[in-house]
Amino acid sequence: MLSPSFQAIMAVKSQVEFKDEIIRFAGDLGFKYVSAMTVIDHSLTHSEFFNVDNMPLAWQEASAGLSESFRRDPVMQHCKRGTVPIIWDQTTYVQQGLGSHWEEQAAYGYRTGIALALHMPEGRHFVMGVDRDRRLPKSPISLTRMVASLQLFAVHAQEAASRLFVPVETQAQRPSLTRRELECLSWTMEGKTAWETGAILSISERTAVLHLQNAMQKLGAVSKHQAVLKAMRLGLIR
């Protein structure tokens, strides 16, 4: 029934059209509010966020002073850790000692909802959620259909969001790394030290360090961990 929404979101040509389509989809699914956030990890400590939502202005202003509880928000914490959708309500917050936060947002219509995350290679993530002020259906079949529709739509929305919000990394912009440099980055990504990487590749620890330093320089990174994330984002390693 919602398949036209999948086609429509893929065809959007502007950020305004993107917002209109995700709001239309949420409404068709039975939700008043929707949010779609694209995240790009540039380093272990720096990420770039592109968020689209129809959050009421009153709640934006009221939630401005709740930054600490937002960092602990159980729905966002769930989405950061995996890709399994979460169906949340008051109990989700009470169990984490954040009942007061739920009461704050419930006053603005955020009483229950469904959220999920897509974690892609190259340090990219897409988080989408739909929210409303009335209970979700009790029928497992109806609820399963809601979740499935959101999952399918999110896949298409992520593609559109990447096209509209994320700067294009062209092939010409990708630095040329040697096979050894890529191998050293790959093992670093797996948590190996320079000594362990050298042992695996049958090279000295010093040589492994030199390969990592060369890769850092080519990628414009200040640490080996940032180099790994940049290489992932450019599709050089996976």
Rank of each mutant, 00 (worst) to 15 (best):
L2M: 07
L2K: 06
L2R: 06
S5T: 10
S5K: 10
S5R: 14
F6L: 11
I9C: 05
M10Q: 14
V12Q: 01
K13R: 10
S14H: 02
Q15F: 05
Q15T: 10
E17I: 00
E17F: 05
F18P: 00
F18V: 01
F18Q: 03
D20C: 06
D20K: 14
F25M: 12
F25L: 06
A26T: 07
G27T: 11
G30D: 04
G30N: 06
G30T: 06
F31W: 07
F31Q: 04
K32Y: 06
V34E: 04
V34W: 00
S35Y: 05
S35P: 00
T38Q: 13
S43F: 04
H46C: 07
S47H: 13
S47I: 10
E48P: 02
F49H: 06
F50L: 07
D53I: 01
Q60G: 02
E61F: 06
S63H: 05
A64Y: 05
A64H: 09
L66A: 11
L66W: 13
L66E: 10
S69Y: 12
S69F: 13
F70A: 14
V75W: 15
Q77K: 14
C79L: 13
C79A: 15
K80A: 11
P85H: 13
P85Y: 07
V94N: 12
Q95F: 04
Q95K: 11
G97S: 00
G99W: 01
G99V: 01
G99I: 00
S100W: 15
W102N: 03
W102G: 00
E104Y: 14
E104T: 04
Q105W: 00
A106I: 02
A107R: 15
A107N: 06
Y108W: 02
H119L: 05
H119M: 15
E122T: 02
E122I: 03
E122A: 14
G123E: 03
G123H: 07
V130F: 02
D131H: 15
D131L: 09
R134Q: 10
L136F: 00
L136Q: 02
K138M: 12
P140T: 01
P140W: 11
L143V: 12
M146L: 15
L150I: 11
L150V: 05
L152V: 01
A154H: 08
V155C: 13
H156E: 09
A157D: 04
A157R: 09
Q158M: 14
E159P: 00
A160H: 03
A160K: 06
S162I: 02
R163K: 14
R163I: 04
F165H: 03
V168H: 14
E169D: 14
E169Y: 11
T170C: 07
Q171W: 12
Q173D: 09
R180L: 13
E181D: 03
E181N: 04
E183C: 05
S186M: 15
S186H: 15
E190I: 03
G191Y: 05
K192N: 10
T193S: 15
A194I: 07
W195K: 13
W195G: 07
A199P: 02
A199Q: 13
I200G: 01
S202I: 05
S202P: 00
L212E: 09
N214E: 15
M216R: 08
M216A: 04
K218E: 11
K218C: 03
G220K: 12
G220C: 07
A221K: 02
A221C: 03
H225R: 14
Q226S: 09
A227I: 09
A227H: 03
V228A: 09
L229V: 10
K230I: 07
A231D: 15
M232N: 08
L234F: 08
L236I: 05
I237T: 03
